[in-house]
């Protein structure tokens, strides 16, 4: 029902190509992994797919029942986690989720947010200010933020960073859940995370 089509993506910084001619299609139930050395453009590729960075050439299209999805609705299509992202430090975890629910226009439902908090293992500290969170807890909350609207496409940039072994299990469960009906793309260098992918794109030349 959903699909993602990436064609001939190129990103150029000054003289050098970060990546060139990336094309692939993704369908529900598929997980793709992107690997590559530091600076090979993994994160940038994910940001281009999410629509945060404009590609030099090429296009990213998202489809629902064969129809291309307008830019305005992509925010409902994509959920993304990246090390460079942060959530609001002066809000509690639950307030953060409440804000993102409302701003995405999906309506705030305390119960389902608490369920997600449970899923990522933060239910005891739902009322704590994010400022007091450890980096691992922040990472878990970022995962929750990306899952809030049950996005068809999940973009995970180093999902396991700062996470302990229990946290890695959470990530594993999330990817397994997503495989049931959605698509995911994982950018990582961790052997274990890359292995989640059915397909692997290697960006290092």
């Amino acid at each position: 029902m959903y699909s993602l089509k990436v064609s001939n993506l190129c990103k150029q910084y000054t003289e050098t190509y970060l990546f060139q001619d990336i094309s692939f299609e993704l369908h529900p139930g598929e997980v793709m992994a992107i690997s590559g050395w530091n600076g090979s453009g993994k994160s940038t590729l994910l940001r281009v797919i999410a629509g945060l960075v404009r590609p030099t050439t090429g296009r990213v299209e998202m489809f629902f029942k064969g129809e291309s999805i307008a830019r305005e609705f992509r925010r409902r299509f994509v959920g993304m986690v990246a090390p460079a992202f942060s959530l609001y430090e002066e809000l509690t975890a639950l307030e953060n989720l409440e804000f993102f629910c409302k701003v995405r226009g999906i309506g705030y439902d305390r119960e389902s947010c608490l369920v997600i908090m449970e899923q990522i293992g933060l239910s005891e500290s739902a009322g704590t200010l994010c400022r007091n969170y450890s980096s691992g807890m922040k990472q878990r909350l970022k995962l929750a933020q990306a899952l809030l609207h049950k996005p068809p496409l999940l973009l995970l940039d180093e999902p396991g960073c700062n996470l302990d072994s229990k946290g890695m299990e959470v990530v594993e469960n999330i990817i397994a859940d997503q495989r049931r009906s959605g698509m995911s793309i994982i950018a990582s260098n961790e052997r274990r995370e890359v292995d989640y992918g059915d397909r692997v794109i290697n960006l290092s030349k």
């Binding site: 940001r47 999410a50 629509g51 945060l52 305005e72 925010r75 994509v78 993304m80 990246a82 460079a84 992202f85 942060s86 959530l87 609001y88 430090e89 993102f100 701003v103 995405r104 933020q145």
Partner: peptide
């Protein structure tokens, strides 16, 4: 500064 801009860009419509 708090690098929350990217998440906001991903989740909210610009006019909002």
């Amino acid at each position: 500064e708090a690098s929350t801009m990217d998440v906001l860009k991903l989740s909210a419509r610009p006019q909002a």
